[in-house]
Amino acid sequence: MRPGLGERGEIRAETAEDTRAFGERLGALLEAGDVVILDGPLGAGKTTMTQGLARGMGVRGRVTSPTFTIAREHRATEPGAPGLIHVDAYRLLGDGGGDPVGALDSLDLESRLDEAAVVAEWGEGLVGQIAGTCLVVHLDRTTAVEEDPDSEARIISWRWEGEDA
């Protein structure tokens, strides 16, 4: 568990920029070896959150969804600072006919945890296997839209999971 974040919590982000700003605050806390799982339906703001994480970590490169590449690596701009590996586990899960754990293993993320944090969209129950502890962040757009159909808000909740949580 990282100081400044707590074991679990929840905030309401009214705009996409608010989502990025929360991600930036979280990104500033990340260290090499950290695994963050972003969970939520299509359009919930997982990539937007990752853009903020990258900004907070100070890594290079434009952050876009890694849907077709499965994983993108963003190198640190400062010597000794962690890089960011952005994974889209949705493609690993596929249609249920493949071996998602084998596909995850082929990315060899474990060997890069000493120099990078891993942020995985759609990774709950899969990517968490590469680290003893991970931070699961859920992005909920449904609740705010049910209250106000014109709302852009997201309810962002987080919790630490695993052996050291």
Rank of each mutant, 00 (worst) to 15 (best):
G9D: 14
G33A: 08
P100T: 07
T47H: 04
D34Y: 02
A153R: 07
V87M: 01
E31N: 13
L53S: 00
I130N: 00
L109A: 09
K46T: 07
R2Q: 15
D114M: 08
G58Y: 04
A54C: 12
G94P: 07
I37T: 12
L42R: 09
G128N: 12
E24K: 12
L38F: 13
L109E: 00
R112Y: 11
K46C: 09
V136P: 01
Y90I: 02
I11L: 15
G9P: 11
R62L: 15
E152N: 11
R154Q: 08
T15W: 13
G128M: 04
A116E: 10
W122I: 09
I156D: 04
T69L: 11
V118P: 03
V101N: 00
E124S: 15
L38P: 05
P41E: 15
S157N: 04
I130R: 03
L109C: 10
T15C: 13
R91D: 03
D18C: 09
E121M: 06
M49S: 03
I70P: 01
G61M: 09
G45P: 08
G6A: 14
W160M: 03
E73V: 14
R62I: 12
L29K: 01
G33Q: 02
A54E: 00
D105W: 08
P79G: 05
L139W: 03
W158A: 04
L26R: 02
T15I: 11
T50M: 03
E78P: 06
L93Y: 02
R141D: 01
A120L: 13
I155F: 14
L29Q: 09
G61S: 05
G80D: 11
G58A: 10
A89R: 02
Y90K: 02
Y90G: 06
G125V: 10
E146A: 15
E14P: 12
G40L: 00
S151H: 11
G123S: 10
L26T: 01
G52Q: 05
V101L: 14
G98C: 08
H74Y: 10
A54K: 05
E146Q: 15
E73C: 06
A54Y: 01
V137W: 00
A76N: 05
Y90F: 13
I70T: 11
G97I: 03
S157L: 07
E7S: 15
G4T: 12
Q129E: 08
V59L: 09
A76D: 07
H138S: 13
V35M: 06
I156P: 01
V136R: 01
T69G: 01
G123C: 14
I130Y: 07
G58V: 08
V101G: 00
G102Y: 07
W160V: 04
I85M: 05
G52D: 09
A103H: 04
T50Q: 02
L92D: 03
D88W: 02
Y90Q: 04
V136G: 01
L113T: 14
E147C: 07
V145R: 15
L5P: 13
F22D: 03
S111L: 06
A21L: 12
A13N: 03
E17H: 10
I130Q: 01
R159W: 05
V63P: 00
A44G: 11
T47V: 08
M1I: 13
P66I: 04
P82K: 00
V63D: 03
E124W: 09
A89G: 05
E17Y: 00
L107N: 04
S151M: 06
R112V: 12
Q129K: 13
E7K: 14
A153H: 12
D105S: 10
L93I: 09
V127S: 07
T64Q: 08
D114I: 13
G61Q: 06
